[in-house]
Structure formats: C-alpha cells, structure tokens
Design a protein around this nucleic acid. Structure first.
Lengths: 154, 154
DNA sequence: AAGGGATTAATGCGTTTTCATATAAACTTC
DNA sequence: GAAGTTTATATGAAAACGCATTAATCCCTT
C-alpha cells in the first residue's frame, strides 16, 4: 500500500461535491464493471444494451445522450455492436435521416441476463448503504466513498 | 429536439442506481467541464491539478487512483503535463522506485485559479439543489437528473 | 413549391486511453 | 547477503475517443 497523501484531511477534492459524486459513482460502478469485464463486455456496450431493453428502437443521438457519449463515438460503438450481432440498424419510416437501433435476439438475451445481474448488484449496494435514505448528499457521498474504498483495483 | 423514447417512464435504467449516479455526476460535471474546455484544459489535467493543490508530492499510482484513471494512463498524462510545465517529477528520498509529482509554479497558479472557479461553481450547484440536504439518494439523484437535464450539449 | 436554416448520422484525423508486458527498486526470508 | 517476491513506474501496440466536417433529409418561411 502506498503512503497516505502528505496532508490527509485537507485536500480540496475530498470535500468537493463534483469529485465526491464522480468518485462514488466510479467506486460503486467498478464492482459491476468488473463483472462485465470477466464476461468480456465493455461498459459502453452494457450501457447500450441496458438502454435498449424494452425499446422498439432508439435513435443514435438519443442513445449517445443516454449513454453519456458523443454521437460519433456512439456511431462507431454501434458499428462494432452490429458486427458482433448485438444490435441492428433500421430506417425510421417517417424521417429518413433517423436510424432506429434495436436489439437483435442475441442482444436481447444478453441484455436481459445482464439487467438481472445489475438488479442483483443494485440490491446488494443498497443493502450495504442503509443510511442512504436519510443523509445529506455530501456526507452521504463521502460516506460511500469512504466505506466503498478500494474493494480491489479500481 | 428528438422524439422521446418509445416507452418514456418504463426504462430499466431510469430507476437504476448506478445509472442515476453516473448520469447525475456527468450532468453536473459537464457544466464545469465546459468551462475547462473553453480554457483549453482537459478533465484529467484538471483532476491532477486539483489533486496536487496543497500537496508536497503525490505518487503516480496515488494520483491515478485519485483521478480515477489507470496507472499507465497517468504516466502518459504526467508526461504531457511535465512537457507543458504544469508539474514536475521528483525522486522520493526513501524509496527510489517512487516518483513524487508536484506542481510547478505555473501549475500552482493555474490550479489555484481553477479551484476558486470550482468552488464558485459548486456553490451554484448546491444553491440550485436545495433539497439535496434531506432527500433519499435515489429520488435525490433522479431529481438532479431531471432538473439538470440538458442545459446544452452534454 | 423552393430555398435557407436546422437536424440526423457518418467519416477522417489526431490524440488519448487501455491492455499487456517490461524494467527497476525495495522488501522478505532463509 | 543473495534469491525470490512484491511494489512502482514505464513502454509499446491496438483500440477508443473527441472534434470538425460532410452528406442527406426535414422544416419553415415566403
């Protein structure tokens, strides 16, 4: 284990809301992302799959926003997912500019399975943070960061 | 504006904790990241600067963890920051494996200025989310997502 | 109904990140 | 004190990302 930082309790970022949110999100998500990696699934792919469950078809731009990516990044990600047989592109009947992206059968099987695992994991996380229902946001997130700290490699 | 998704209120992800956290974090941070971009500063560079304010020197691995990056990524990021005169590498006296990274004068000036802007922005965000002090985490984060929604391009 | 302006998705290029591995230094143990 | 193990950082190839631009379609005004 490396030495603790020179000034342990005094760092700007440790009381900075945006950092607390980013770190809490990162730490908690890392657990599930590890599970994904073991299955050879990248985080962006998982996000697209999860976004498309139950949908008849989403636009590229809409998916990009949902998945927190830029549109060109999404286009290239979809290229790979089409190649891997997870999603298909369809033309929108009303607007020929629009591409509707939907799950293939294979994609749907995978997505459904992962969503179930995600729900399980979410339940575990919530069980682990029982005070989450009542605390102020900063101390809450700070608590998550502290408690969650480094279960393994982030 | 694009069409709303086929099933508006029923998506799995809209009630999924990890997504709510990631999205809330992304949305709020985007505002500040826009400010950074206007100044030509990337998010990872900002994170390193913010991590080093008030420090005598952090290790590469420690910085990587703090900044939510992998260690090789941090090494290369530091290469660029050294090149740009923002940080310097120093040898640790006790453990010669360890590289101590610290701000240069130029880096410190920049970091201090940015931290001040970050504090301002944080205050604005907190003022905008007054109920943040008392709400349950999921509805809290969901509320942030809803209210923050798309101030401009994410 | 035609043309200007806006919107959707794709492409190309340069940069950055990741994954796997290599190198070097320091601890441990016999 | 030397071999083996662990820890810290660096490197190199391949993938992914971001920005700017392009092509096609739609919308709205006149």
């Amino acid at each position: 284990m490396p030495q603790p930082p020179a000034s342990t309790a005094q760092r700007f970022i440790d009381d900075y809301l945006l950092y607390l949110m980013a770190r809490a999100s990162h730490l908690i998500s890392s657990e599930f992302h590890d599970l994904l990696r073991r299955r050879g699934i990248s985080v962006p792919v998982w996000r697209v799959l999860a976004s498309l469950v139950g949908s008849q078809g989403e636009t590229v731009t809409g998916l990009a926003e949902t998945c927190l990516l830029q549109q060109p990044t999404m286009t290239k990600l979809l290229d790979r997912m089409v190649r891997d047989g997870l999603v298909k592109r369809m033309q929108d009947t009303r607007d020929r500019r629009v591409v509707r992206v939907a799950l293939t059968t294979r994609g749907e099987v995978m997505a459904t399975e992962l969503v179930q695992l995600a729900r399980q994991h979410e339940a575990e996380v919530l069980a682990r943070h029982p005070e989450a229902e009542a605390m102020a946001i900063k101390s809450l997130l700070r608590g998550i960061v502290a408690r969650q700290a480094k279960p393994r490699r982030g």
